[in-house]
């Protein structure tokens, strides 16, 4: 009996030690799995889009690309994880423009300039919705009624996020005021709309779709420059004379100071993933556009978005103290 136990023990220890022998030598990057930090829970837009491109990046990098969800504080905790990570390219971040909002409202103390932006990746649309029994059928109806009763209608928004900024921009362009009620999460806001606790709100198009199709909500406008491919019948806000935009646009970031050859490798692997026809098809299935931007384009895009949000934050008095 004791002998058998000893044998097992020795075998176990051998395996343990063998498993610990890490492949040595300075092979070319990457030599181990790459972690993509998603600062939100599994199942959301960020998570799903990342899980798709990770599979394609894996092919060109030859190492597993693992999705790691670190949620909390609207994305702050995941961002901090990458901000403080060793700049070796093994830990990267997939985050949308809420990164700027978190800085501008004082939740975080870092901007996109504290990372190495690899590239802008996918984007998806947002829509303005009202309940099925709402008298409103276009943004013009909303403007008319809201002008007549300032501060009366309940507008729910996700505080401190791109949604907050987009909604503020929309209301200021419409030149109306509403009773602004904070509520995070697309589904809670839709629930609230269905229960009649709120008159109007903005959510991601993907969240609204099932309820739009079942006829429970009406979509008054798409919050992008162009009509959505998935909602060709719905006009944009700009077509209705409201100059406001709200996009979910994802960006791949690496920690600041990663070696430039690693940066280049990440970018080219990401590019080949984002431009592969199969990925584009997979993204379309979840109503997302794969729009890869190269280095200069990405930096220009981030600069212009950041400046736009900064101006809005100052205009509406939510700028960091």
């Amino acid at each position: 009996m004791t002998k058998r136990v000893m044998t097992i023990t020795v075998a176990v220890l051998t395996v343990l030690l063998l498993a610990l022998a890490v492949p040595g030598g300075a092979a070319t990057w990457p030599v181990k799995p790459i972690e993509v930090i998603i600062p939100y829970a599994p199942g959301g837009g960020s998570d799903v889009t990342a899980r798709i491109f990770a599979r394609y990046m894996e092919k060109s990098l030859g190492q597993p690309v693992v999705i790691v969800n670190i949620e909390g504080a609207q994305g702050k905790i995941g961002e901090m994880e990458v901000l403080n990570a060793r700049p070796d390219g093994y830990k990267i971040l997939w985050q949308h423009h809420v990164l700027h909002c978190l800085y501008l409202t004082g939740v975080t103390n870092h901007t996109w300039k504290d990372f190495t932006p690899i590239a802008v990746g996918g984007k998806s649309d947002n829509v303005v919705i009202v309940g099925k029994n709402s008298p409103w059928n276009s943004m013009a109806d909303v403007v008319r009624d809201a002008k007549a009763k300032p501060e009366h209608f309940v507008m729910e928004f996700a505080p401190g996020t791109t949604n907050h900024f987009g909604v503020l921009q929309m209301l200021s362009e419409m030149n109306v005021t509403m009773n602004m009620v904070p509520k995070s999460g697309d589904n809670p806001r839709i629930t609230s709309l269905l229960g009649g606790h709120c008159d109007i709100t903005a959510v991601a198009m993907n969240s609204a779709m099932p309820f739009y199709k079942s006829g429970d909500v009406k979509i008054l406008g798409v919050m992008s420059k162009d009509r959505s491919k998935w909602l060709p019948e719905v006009p944009t806000l700009m077509e209705q004379g409201i100059n406001a935009e709200l996009l979910n646009e994802y960006v791949l970031y690496a920690p600041k100071g990663i070696p430039s050859d690693v940066e280049a490798k990440l970018r080219s692997a990401f590019k080949s993933a984002m431009t592969s026809p199969e990925l584009i098809k997979e993204y379309e299935a979840i109503a997302t556009v794969a729009n890869f931007m190269d280095k200069q384009e990405t930096i220009d895009r981030l600069t212009s978005i950041f400046n736009g949000y900064e101006a809005l934050a100052k205009q509406f008095g939510i700028y960091r103290k």
Partner: peptide
């Protein structure tokens, strides 16, 4: 002590490789 080594070894390997290989949890 022997029991501990056996249980610890088997358990550690089971958990580590189970999570890594089956669930891609690092």
């Amino acid at each position: 002590l022997l029991q501990g080594i056996v249980v610890g070894g088997i358990l550690t390997l089971m958990v580590y490789y189970g999570l890594k290989e089956l669930l891609r949890l690092m």
